[in-house]
Structure formats: structure tokens, C-alpha cells
Design a protein around this nucleic acid. Structure first.
Lengths: 167, 167
DNA sequence: GTCTATTACATAGCAAGCTATACGCGACGA
DNA sequence: TCGTCGCGTATAGCTTGCTATGTAATAGAC
């Protein structure tokens, strides 16, 4: 497992350079900054960041179940349940019974939810563009690749943990 | 402003590659994975991730005010107030009046809080090491640099926004 | 055909983040 | 000295995330 490539030895970067040099700190900070930036841009449409992933999944295909949405956006089920409740309250979605299975309910977009699509996609693009300002395409790609690798390292139990769902 | 370097044009990566290719999505997911990893490792010590940054700042120097801690860890004041309340409840810190200013209170670590230092630093290092497993030192440095640049892009109003505080 | 196990969703309760607002103390000009 | 303004904390109320647990409906074993 100890290949030829010089690999990070895990020695206390934190102790050596302080908390700002910690991956965890920096990622947490960035996540909050991105969320706030998105919030500012979509507030006028009556949408909040937490509703974003579910909306995107529904733009690809409606009539999904709650469980399906959980897997697609990597969020725990009770979190999704609450998010869907707020989205229903805000008139973005409706939930109807699944004729094939009495436990499930199928999530559909309302006309309003559907109409927001272009504005929301534009807002997300704009945030990502702002965030990556001054970075070359290669650097952005590099960043995304590195992030993916770190995510995979932490993603417990390998890929079987998150079964494939219809996209 | 449009230099010679090929720069990301901001065209809808989201629309082209789906939400998993979005910086916002990936960073949010990573932040949650890192938080959970840290939570698992420090739960036995009766500490939770939100208390971590404040603890590190206090390990560097005790007797800080709430406002000082806010600036150091880049958290809004009401969030810090609540976090400090929980830390006090959990016996990690104590708050005494500032003799020089009746509005302020000075935060000190308890013996228990102080004793946890090596275990907590080790836990954080271990999470960061896990996360960056398989990445070379150069790749880790590259990732941190890219993250810093993105953070700076989003950090509203330039550096004056966050006045320097005694470290 | 019933009994059990699994699956889908709901609920409770907590942490951690935010904005907006209230309140008490200090500083400072008139 | 006395307002007034600013600063430090606290509180209220929301979202977004989690774990643990409850409940109803389905699927499978027998």
C-alpha cells in the first residue's frame, strides 16, 4: 500500500500551521460561504439552498419517491422528509400516493416549481462561476478531481453503501 | 481583466454534467462527511465538532472574549454564544467577568477542557490524514491552495471585512 | 393464510449555522 | 451631568443536518 509516490504522512499540519490550514476548517468555511452566496441569489424566488438538490433531481425526472431522492442527493431520510415538507408548504412540490405501493408517495413539481428551473440553474452557475473566478479551466477540473478523491476516501464502506438509483 | 490564461467561462457545468459536478454540491457533501468523521472520533471525549474551532483558539491563548473568538473562527456572534453555552454546560469552559469592561466576559478552559487537547488534536489530524489518504504532499498542498483561492473569491468585501485579532 | 421481517415514511430531539432584534454597559460630546 | 451612540452579549426564530425511534404497509417464509 506504500507506493513509490511521496504520500502525505499525516503529521500534525494543524499543530504546525494552526487551524486555518486544516482541511476540515477550510472546507466547512467554504461550504458556508457557498451556501450564503446561493441563498442571496435565490431568496427573491422564495427558494432556499437546502431545497436545491431535491429540485435539481426533480427537474431531471418527476414522480420520485422520498427514498429515491435521499439516495440521489446523499441526504438522510428524516432530513429529506423535513425539506420536502417545507417545499410543499412553499408551493414547490406536491405529494401524491403511489398506486403501486401504499407506503410510498410520489413527489411532483408544481407549476411554480417547474417555472423556476432556468432562474435557479442560472443562480447556481453564477455562484460556481464567482467561486472559481480567476481559476483556469484546468485548475477548476483539478479542484473537482481532488475533492472527489477526498470524498471517496471518507465515503464509508465503499460504493455498495449507496445503491444505484434511476437518474 | 481578461488575462492571457484560459479562464473558466462559467458555462453551465451543472446543466452539462449534473449536480454531482457542481462545486457547491461537492463541497457541501465533503463538509458533512468531514464533520461526521470528526464527530465519531471525538464523541467518546464528550466534545462535538462545533466546539472544535473555539477549543483550538483557546488552546493558543485563554481569556479571550466572545467577539474575539467569533473573528478567529469566522462564525457569527449568536452562533458562538450558543456554542459557548453548550461548552459551559459540558464543562469545557468557564466564563468570568472582564474587570476592565463590564460588557465583556472572558472565556477560560476548565481543567477538563485543557486535558483534552492532545486527544482532540490527534483526532483532527487523523481525520485529515484519512481524508487525504492516497494524495501526495504536493496534491494536498495544491488542494489547500485552490480552496484558499475559492474562499477568497467569496469572502465579501476584501480582507478589511475581518479585522485582525490577536492570535 | 398467517407471522415475521423489511421497507417507506413520520416524528422527536439535538447541534450548528444564519438574520434580526433587544438590552446593558461604556465612551464621549454638548 | 446627561443624552446619545457604539459595542458586547443575549434571545428569538428560522433552516439544514444528524441519530434514534415509531408506525404502517408490503414481501416472504412457512
Amino acid at each position: 500500500m506504500t507506493g513509490g509516490k511521496p504520500v502525505n504522512d499525516g503529521a500534525s499540519r494543524l499543530a504546525r500551521f494552526g487551524r486555518h490550514a486544516s482541511l476540515g476548517y477550510q472546507v466547512n468555511l467554504l461550504a458556508r460561504l457557498l451556501e450564503q452566496a446561493l441563498r442571496r441569489r435565490i431568496a427573491a424566488h422564495g427558494v432556499v439552498p437546502g431545497q436545491f438538490p431535491a429540485l435539481l433531481a426533480l427537474y431531471e425526472r418527476e414522480g420520485r419517491t422520498q427514498t429515491e431522492l435521499c439516495h440521489l442527493v446523499r441526504i438522510e431520510q428524516p432530513t429529506m422528509a423535513n425539506t420536502l415538507n417545507r417545499m410543499q408548504r412553499d408551493g414547490l412540490i406536491s405529494r401524491g400516493p403511489d398506486p403501486a405501493d401504499g407506503r410510498r408517495s410520489l413527489v411532483e413539481l408544481t407549476a411554480r416549481g417547474r417555472a423556476l428551473r432556468p432562474a435557479l440553474v442560472a443562480a447556481a452557475d453564477s455562484v460556481n462561476a464567482d467561486a472559481t473566478g480567476g481559476l483556469s479551466d484546468v485548475e477548476v477540473q483539478n479542484l473537482m478531481d481532488l475533492l472527489s478523491r477526498v470524498v471517496e476516501n471518507l465515503d464509508s464502506g465503499g460504493p455498495d453503501q449507496h445503491p444505484a438509483v434511476a437518474t
